[in-house]
């Protein structure tokens, strides 16, 4: 081995772990989804959900519909439209473990449930003692099919699969745009105004700040997901994805502004699979972008 090679190997050994720490998640562009099976273009899609069985559901907000796709080894298949009168402005979508879908429709702030065949089941209405108006602005489903809703009344409301209110948790003052819950039951919420993440452990009665204000790192965080021991945050006005540790530490930023494939314009929701596929609802680019974070 020459001296130069030895030096390079030494530098790689020394810098390798540093680089891995600084850039723990790397997005690599794969493909983009523009249309449904009838060549109908997506328009301002804000929501996207996916699972490990190859299902991909797009909340095609501007067209007031859902479009479902099958993700195969060779790419995303043709999309099937799901359009019902109850869908006016679908903005967030989640797949439940039984194959059903829950959609947040911004018009009227309603959570709508669809079964595994795509049939409309009904609106998710809280049952039990819940003061004030329930007007969800974001939500997540956990493994037990409980609905975790970020309510416009400044609280997190947890509903069991039957709709019964099982827990409420007041949010701090802020402009909260999304929440996420991990397998341990810790709930995270993101305040876009201060670019801060808050958390509450299972059983906690109040949120505490997890991160400091990350205004230098994020412009307007709009979506949050916990995956692979990280918090992935969609920075809608910053046109990118910010990666935080579950301790709130800033660990990197991926993607940037642009119109060409692999770039974002006002992204909305993001979903990812165990395999490392990531789909981003690229709202102002009228498409869904597919990336991989698998190494």
């Amino acid at each position: 081995m020459s001296n130069a090679t030895k030096l390079l190997a030494l530098a790689a050994a020394a810098l390798g772990p540093v680089l891995v720490r600084a850039e723990p998640v790397v997005f690599t562009y794969t493909e983009a989804v523009y249309i449904d099976s009838k060549e109908g273009p997506l328009r301002s899609p804000e929501g996207v959900a996916c699972d490990d069985r190859g299902a991909l559901v797009v909340a095609d907000t501007g067209n007031s519909r859902l479009v479902t796709y099958a993700v195969r080894e060779d790419g995303v298949g043709a999309g099937t439209e799901l359009k019902v009168p109850q869908l006016v402005a679908p903005v967030r979508v989640q797949l439940d473990p039984q194959g059903g879908t829950v959609v947040l429709d911004r018009k009227g702030s309603r959570l709508l449930r669809f079964d595994a065949k795509g049939a409309y089941v009904g609106a998710v209405e809280p049952k039990g003692d819940l003061p004030g108006t329930f007007a969800p602005v974001a939500f997540k489903l956990d493994a037990d099919r409980n609905v975790w809703a970020l309510d416009g009344a400044g609280r997190v409301v947890v509903l069991d699969p039957a709709g019964a209110v099982t827990r409420t948790l007041a949010l701090p003052k802020g402009v909260f745009t999304d929440l996420a819950v991990d397998a341990a039951g810790t709930v995270y919420a993101v305040d876009a105004g201060q670019a801060m993440v808050w958390s509450a452990a299972k059983g906690a009665t109040a949120f505490t700040s997890l991160s400091k204000s990350l205004k230098d790192e994020m412009s307007f965080p709009a979506y949050l997901v916990v995956a692979k021991g990280k918090l992935l945050i969609v920075d809608q006005v910053g046109h990118g994805v910010v990666v935080l540790g579950t301790d709130g530490s800033f660990q990197g930023r991926q993607l940037s502004y642009g119109v060409s494939e692999g770039l974002l314009q006002y992204p909305g929701q993001l979903c990812l699979t165990e395999k490392g596929d990531v789909f981003v609802a690229d709202r102002n680019n009228n498409r869904v972008d597919r990336y991989t974070i698998a190494r």
């Binding site: 523009y34 249309i35 273009p41 997506l42 328009r43 119109v259 060409s260 494939e261 680019n285 009228n286 498409r287």
Partner: peptide
């Protein structure tokens, strides 16, 4: 059409 994106047309914000 915006040549970079089949779902966009050319506007000022392009």
């Amino acid at each position: 059409k915006d040549p970079r994106n089949r779902n966009l047309t050319l506007e000022c914000v392009s």
